[in-house]
Design a protein around this nucleic acid. Structure first.
Lengths: 192, 192
DNA sequence: TGCATTTGCCTAAAGCTTTTAGGCAAATTA
DNA sequence: TAATTTGCCTAAAAGCTTTAGGCAAATGCA
């Protein structure tokens, strides 16, 4: 019997492509097997189960995103860095909707701690060095940026901003302008 | 044979509770049937298929959220309204994680247009009347707020902010302070 | 109250996905 | 070339989804 040359890596990559084509939650071992022209059981030598497959796709997406982000911010600072960084997330979500959804998947704490997710947080902090924020405000800002990137990408993917003016492109630009202004002018803790 | 008294409404409500208990994507017709002590096929008289069930749970969640939000903002304005509104989203996500995930589900355009989603957008606009924003900036701000609420809730649910200082509560408060400051001070479109 | 109709839940069955166990042949190593 | 490892296979069990057809309970009407 001819061997197709399955490896965990190839299976996960094919899973990521499948996710982009049919949606992350339509990724099944069966469909993947069909694409490799292989029996389903054969896949189970390379991933523990279908949950494991999905988790690996998520980890792959997080790494790809982190690599792209690292590239984008290299040699930039201030608003320039912020915009480049933010666009990586948005563009990734539009080019790879399945992977992007995967990247938003809930991971158990240990898996998350060992994932490229930590690089994302570090890079966000690095960008904030271009603004004058001490702790704990820097952490608040990291969380705010994460929420906006995450949320915008997800709403845009869900079609929330299509079919209505102004177009998403313009909102995105202006939101980044606004975030930049906010970070330059972060309000002091109000005295209660 | 004793009748349990299934209706579409009861099935969907039970589905929403199940979602909160086991996670939205673990909601299956089989499990629901088990809880009603009924055969699976019986459910299919009340929902078209399992996708229909999930969509109906999402619509229920959107309505509940809109009702809560409407209550919360009644009689409030400015930052007070913003904070009350925002807290509805965050609290709902923490009290009803499954429903909240459902509310973030991708709906097809017609379904979305007929959903309580439009009330959410209207209420967000109403809150922004407390700030001095013209069009198209008001729309940009609606999208920003949607992204933040959506994103923060989703990250918090995924455990992104637990096990690290400062606690999520504090970040949330400070992020709302920051958004209020931003809306009061929305930057003009930069001249290119 | 008695009868007709509607409705609610059932059984049956087919098709699909997941997952495990065990086997044989191809690839690798010695 | 022989021994070992590895890759893919068949088989099979178990669960979820969905449709079709049937019977009995609830409802409506004379």
């Amino acid at each position: 019997m001819a061997r197709v040359g399955l490896t965990t890596d190839r299976v996960v990559r094919a899973g990521a492509e499948l996710a982009d084509e049919v949606g992350f939650d339509q990724v099944t071992a069966s469909e993947l097997a069909r694409r490799f022209d292989v029996k389903v059981a054969s896949l189970y030598a390379h991933v523990k189960n279908s949950q494991d497959l999905r988790t690996r796709i998520a980890l792959l997406a997080l790494e790809e995103l982190a690599d792209l982000a690292a590239d984008a911010v290299a040699g930039r600072a201030g608003k320039d860095a912020l915009v480049a960084f933010a666009n990586v997330y948005r563009d990734y979500g539009r080019e790879h909707p399945g992977r992007a959804t995967a990247a938003r998947m809930r991971l158990d704490p240990e898996t998350a701690a060992a994932s490229a997710g930590v690089r994302h947080a570090q890079m966000t902090r690095a960008i904030l060095r271009g603004y004058d924020l001490g702790e704990p405000d820097q952490t608040h800002a990291v969380r705010l940026l994460g929420s906006v990137f995450h949320g915008y990408s997800s709403l845009e993917l869900a079609g929330g901003f299509s079919h209505s003016a102004p177009d998403s492109e313009e909102s995105w630009t202006r939101i980044l302008d606004a975030l930049d202004a906010l970070l330059r002018n972060w309000p002091a803790t109000p005295t209660p």
